[in-house]
Write a protein that binds this DNA or RNA. Structure first.
Lengths: 332, 332
DNA sequence: TTGAAAGCGCTACCAG
DNA sequence: CTGGTAGCGCTTTCAA
């Protein structure tokens, strides 16, 4: 039950392949009568163009690659969903790869996608990534790329939220509500997203004349265990925090667990503000006051940027999708 | 900065393409000296085989397709993650498509994947799907397929959980704990997963001599709004349920919201047991007693089944990944 | 309007 | 050990 080819159609009808090709694509230069016959037979036999022959011919694959640290993480899953929807509208299929937030995997995935001849790549850096040679190499081979969520100071288009700004706002909010010792839970210091958010947090403290306590800042790793350890350490301080900013969903949930495990109440004893997705915030208890990121918009913009690049736009753009603070029940 | 081809290497070295091909693939019949030269140049010039030429030649793509109702849904996202990991180990890339749980999209995605010449497809039916012609057609073209999570009475390999059995167990559990009016929230009746689970639920009621109340069974649609409406209707009954079984994550969360909105307490007034992922159960409040499905195992088994099929195994297999009930705080 | 042939990059087969 | 050549399915150019 092999798929029928143009040649076979041609043979069956006793005509030439090139005629079949023209007829099938609706080009001029085929008599209406012959065209009808060809189209009819093609339909009957379920003719489908072989995409590899086409790709080989045009060096085009109608395929893009997506690299995420963790597809099963709600935030990324929503972004991926939107990218896929947009891509499909434009006739592109998405190849998805998951790095488990590891640098080595990221390099490997990138290589696989390049070898596959995807026409563009949308990716979120792993939290471990501090060297960008693998990404810069893409420019040399003219591979369109867009970073999202986590970018770096390299000359590559990106879509991120207002990291510093949002952190400044929530810090101010906590200060307004009387917090004196605000802790900050972030990812690796080298990650621009973390340093940006930390920067916003520190800025707000300065503006409000709140002394910075270095031991309230924990920037280690985005993981549940790391969040648990860090928060427990914070709570064991002689002067424990009365508020916590957690910059990743896993840090939010682990921080909450840690606080509860010490018999403390949220928000009475400790306020918590998280960077997390709506839906998770909503289902948690108490509902978490959070920085609402518009994943659909991030996905949409990322694809748009990529699409423009694939169509020849060479200018590097940095898009900021504004996130806004939403008050729920985890803050006083 | 176009990618270099075998022919170019051959020309540069003044040898024949076929020699280059052999050298590059480590085949016999090339002098060590010449092979060194070729490999060296290839590396220097960053030679990568063109996968389309290879695909065209062998009609093989090292690519599989995944179709899910909703990638952003935690349960599916975890399964996808595992499938992708397994596939990559075997050198396959995954093309992901999302149907938004719509039948029409499902047909379309399937067609796209077939046209792309993926070597196999792993899919979860949309809740709307009641006609399986599009899937059975795949057998005719010898496309390996595996269904997961939701299957149907068709002759296609599948991986599901012990649907009826698990439903029977949790119903029994609720009865043991004194529930008298257990409601059942499911998806469309035509969905085998729903009818299986409902069957288990009814069976348990019969065994325990609990009269079946038809108005406690709501099998409409997997969605937050549907769950909300259905639960509110249940609560408005003259004899409202004292326990609810919700067979989908969205139905669980919406049911809980509905119960809360009526000022009722979980589990004091209404017990709830859900089919949902660990992580969501854990973050909810109260933590939801749930049927724990092993998504990693489902993903793993689904890929294994597909992989076997792709390697010529023609027998249809139905794998059951046992789910087990985990008691948390939403049941008395 | 139709046909013939070349070529995309690669592999396989047969000669030398 | 190496070269030549045909062919995978399709498009394109040129010729009839």
């Amino acid at each position: 039950m092999k798929r029928i080819s143009q040649r076979e159609i041609a043979n069956l009808l006793g005509v030439n392949v090139s005629t079949v090709s023209r007829a099938l694509r609706g080009l001029e230069g085929v008599s209406t009568e012959l065209r009808q016959k060809i189209l009819h037979l093609a339909k009957e036999q379920g003719y489908r163009p072989n995409p590899f022959a086409v790709s080989l011919r045009y060096d085009t694959t109608r395929t893009i690659g997506i690299i995420v640290p963790d597809v099963s993480f709600n935030h990324f899953a929503h972004i991926v969903k939107r990218i896929e929807a947009e891509a499909r509208k434009e006739g592109y299929m998405c190849i998805i790869t998951d790095t488990d937030d590891k640098y080595e995997n990221e390099k490997y995935c990138l290589e696989l996608l390049v070898n596959m001849h995807v026409e563009g790549i949308i990716m979120c850096l792993s939290q471990e990534t501090t060297d960008y040679a693998h990404i810069q190499r893409l420019r040399k081979i003219h591979m369109p790329v867009v970073l999202f969520d986590r970018d770096a100071d390299i000359d590559i288009s990106s879509v991120v939220i207002n990291d510093a700004d949002s952190a400044r706002k929530i810090t101010n909010y906590l200060v307004d509500r009387g917090a004196q010792r605000i802790a900050f839970l972030g990812g690796p210091n080298k990650l621009k997203q973390t340093s940006d958010r930390k920067h916003g947090y520190l800025e707000a403290l300065h503006e409000r004349n709140i002394p910075v306590r270095k031991n309230l800042v924990k920037c280690n790793y985005f993981s549940y265990n790391s969040g648990l350890t860090d928060t427990l350490e914070l709570l064991d301080l002689p002067e424990p925090p009365d508020a916590i900013i957690a910059t990743h969903g896993l840090l939010v949930t682990s921080a909450m667990k840690a606080v509860e495990s010490r018999g403390l109440r949220i928000p009475e004893d400790v306020s918590i503000i998280g960077y997390m997705s709506d839906w998770v915030s909503d289902v948690a208890s108490p509902r978490v006051s959070f920085v609402k990121q518009n994943q659909k918009e991030i996905g949409l913009k990322a694809f748009k940027l990529l699409f423009d690049q694939m169509n020849g736009d060479t200018c590097v753009q940095h898009v900021i999708v504004k996130a806004r603070f939403e008050v729920r029940d985890s803050t006083r």
